[in-house]
């Protein structure tokens, strides 16, 4: 799949922001006074920037309100509802909590809605049978895990963060391993795509046209094996190993800041790979193989 910058920034930033909001809602980060204001402002800014970025890839953003109508079947529509609910509840919670009136149940509801938003985003990808690499239980687990880790990291819960970083590194490796085998395991091949598989080996002899088209640009994206290994290594170092190491050293705000920046850069690389590595079934009609 095409790694669109708008989608990479959307899922990374909103994951960071919603994770922090969830921690604020649960009272696991400072919510009062000026410190509270800074935390809430950061969380809302990250979430807002992410959500705005997601509208950049729309052909008709002016009709975006229509996306609230089909929540019965569409995860994208559900995401829109849960996101608005999360921001409204957390906005009210923040307004009350900053002067010192923290309504705990309201915060819990807000935290649930924040994680619900992340979960809905993940389900948009996980529901797609056409992209076997995404159609896995690890997809929602990864998205939720990254958001919770970011929440712990940004709210300064050092020991939680270190544990979460280790767990997430393992989950990420598992997701890659399962993902690499997913297309072959799905049973979709050029043979089933053309219905000719029973007759012999099927190979694209001539594409429909000499140039690219919307489908090839959007869904038939190849990452070189060499880049794949390099980038995966970078993700493991930047998103997990380096932040964990920095947090295990005697605490200083500078080291924590570097840990946050490193984790975010690692997350961006992870999201780039998440899209770029994902093979869409339609690629089989354009000469991609299931191997």
């Amino acid at each position: 799949m095409h790694p669109a910058p708008s989608l990479i920034f959307f899922s990374t930033l909103s994951g960071l922001g919603l994770g922090l909001l969830a921690f604020l809602g649960l009272g696991l980060a400072p919510t009062e006074g000026l410190t509270g204001l800074i935390f809430f402002a950061l969380a809302f800014a990250l979430t807002g920037a992410g959500l705005l970025s997601s509208t950049l890839h729309l052909g008709h953003p002016e009709r975006a309100l229509k996306a609230f109508t089909q929540w019965r079947t569409s995860w994208l529509s559900r995401e829109a509802w849960v996101a608005v609910a999360a921001l409204s509840v957390m906005g009210l919670y923040a307004l009350l909590a900053m002067p010192g009136l923290r309504l705990a149940p309201l915060g819990w509801l807000g935290a649930l809605l924040c994680l619900g938003t992340v979960g809905s985003t993940a389900m948009i990808y996980a529901q797609l049978k056409t992209v076997p690499r995404w159609h896995q239980p690890t997809t929602p687990l990864l998205f939720l895990g990254y958001a919770i880790t970011a929440g712990a990291l940004l709210s300064g819960r050092v020991s939680w963060t270190v544990v979460l970083l280790i767990v997430m590194a393992a989950l990420q490796v598992l997701a890659w391993r399962r993902g690499d085998a997913a297309l072959a395991k799905s049973g979709t091949t050029t043979g089933t795509a053309t219905g000719l598989g029973g007759r012999g080996r099927v190979r694209l002899f001539e594409p429909p046209h000499t140039g690219g088209n919307y489908l090839t640009r959007e869904m038939v994206f190849r990452v070189g094996r060499k880049h794949r290994v390099t980038l995966r290594t970078l993700v493991l170092i930047l998103a997990f190993a380096l932040p964990a190491l920095l947090l295990l050293l005697p605490f200083s705000h500078w080291l924590a800041a570097i840990a946050v920046v490193s984790h975010v850069v690692g997350m961006l690389a992870q999201r780039w790979l998440f899209f770029a590595e994902a093979e869409h079934a339609v690629g089989l009609y354009y000469g991609q193989s299931a191997a």
């Binding site: 050029t190 007759r199 080996r201 190979r203 694209l204 002899f205 429909p208």
Partner: peptide, 9 residues
């Protein structure tokens, strides 16, 4: 669109 495939038995 028309694709053309080769089938090798």
């Amino acid at each position: 669109r028309i694709h053309s495939f080769e089938v090798q038995p």
